[in-house]
Design a protein around this nucleic acid. Sequence first.
DNA 1: AATTTCACCGATAGTACTATCGGTGAAAAA
DNA 2: TTTTTCACCGATAGTACTATCGGTGAAATT
Lengths: 216, 216
Amino acid sequence: MTSTPLTRSEAKDLTRRKLIRAALAILDEEGEAGLTTVRVAKAAGIAQSSFYVHFKDRQELLRVLAEEGGARLLKSMREARRKAREAPDDLERHRETFRIPLEAICRHPELLRIQLRARHDPSSSLRDFATETAAAYRDHHAADLAALGYTADNERDRRRLEMIAEGINAATNALAMGHLEGRYPDLDEAADILTALSRGALRLLRATSAKPAGDV
Amino acid sequence: MTSTPLTRSEAKDLTRRKLIRAALAILDEEGEAGLTTVRVAKAAGIAQSSFYVHFKDRQELLRVLAEEGGARLLKSMREARRKAREAPDDLERHRETFRIPLEAICRHPELLRIQLRARHDPSSSLRDFATETAAAYRDHHAADLAALGYTADNERDRRRLEMIAEGINAATNALAMGHLEGRYPDLDEAADILTALSRGALRLLRATSAKPAGDV
DNA sequence: AATTTCACCGATAGTACTATCGGTGAAAAA
DNA sequence: TTTTTCACCGATAGTACTATCGGTGAAATT
């Protein structure tokens, strides 16, 4: 093995990546409370004090993790959307719209876990990130539904579409977690359920959109 | 005011209740990481060391909180179910099945928040409690759906019913949280969405139940 | 070859928390 | 009335962590 012909900055960058990788693993396994400079540094193979060569403080590490995770999530969401658009017909596209996010989640489950955890934790430094990510997911899903032809042209329907998207999104997360926990072995089955759920809700949207204006 | 004609044990019990009440509030506002003996004792108006008169250690407090919270959740679920059964006709009953849990959540939002937070946090002492509670919710919802006439008589349909229940449950939580965050002012509208979602999924259940056996 | 840079190190000050201990005074029991 | 009990107190030992500091040697620069 022709090992370590590295320049100094390359070596530093490598160490930094080791720290981030170790931090993501610890964050997933132990939660934010378990993410200490001692553990991260040890897992990356350096002294605790050397942690501060790479990050100003613990907060900065968390900020960087949020950015890294956010970038990855956004990337897989964009990818998923692109793929779904390639589906041949409308029925298949509808199904793909739900199967692909499920697969994206299962590819990087730790990111969803971290997000779900931070989402409702007031003490979490990642809370803002989690809230923004959740909102992005919801809007993404709403756009997907709109792309399937369920456009909302008034205030009430827009709110309804948003609620449907948020509901479907929560259901997607729940079923993906259930799959990862081994309760639902078949992802396609989960996609079927999600498709059926959205069908019902969107039928409501169409039905009431057709009605005249008389509501409060 | 004829204040404090209390026996010693009454006074002790009162202090204990003060501690539990303060702990629940702190848990909701600050998360599990913020729940320290210092804060709880101070909020209850006693010295930090006196905390240990009432609880063996911090763990025991968390155990007691989980029990208290679990009992309250179970109670409101039972109550919600009882009310839903009283609804006059099937359509109204279907709608009530979803509106009542929403209301129950909004009555004690801190319990759901604590549960959602602990659910995916490996470092949380309340994780087992949260997992059990979530499973109870899911089964409860599945039973509700079954009560609406959507019985599952084979392995695949039972799993589907469970998935639908889990999805609807997640959507219920999400919409309730959205309502509490001010995004969805009208709970009835949320109940409509949930009703529509479940309709779609249950149509799938019926349709495929009618089919013969040929599937993989 | 001489000098500078800097990633990493061990040691440690400072902080926040958990849990224990002996003491105190008023309620309860004798 | 005398004695015992015990809920609460302040003080503090012990633990785990964050962040800083001066020192070191090899890479980089001169």
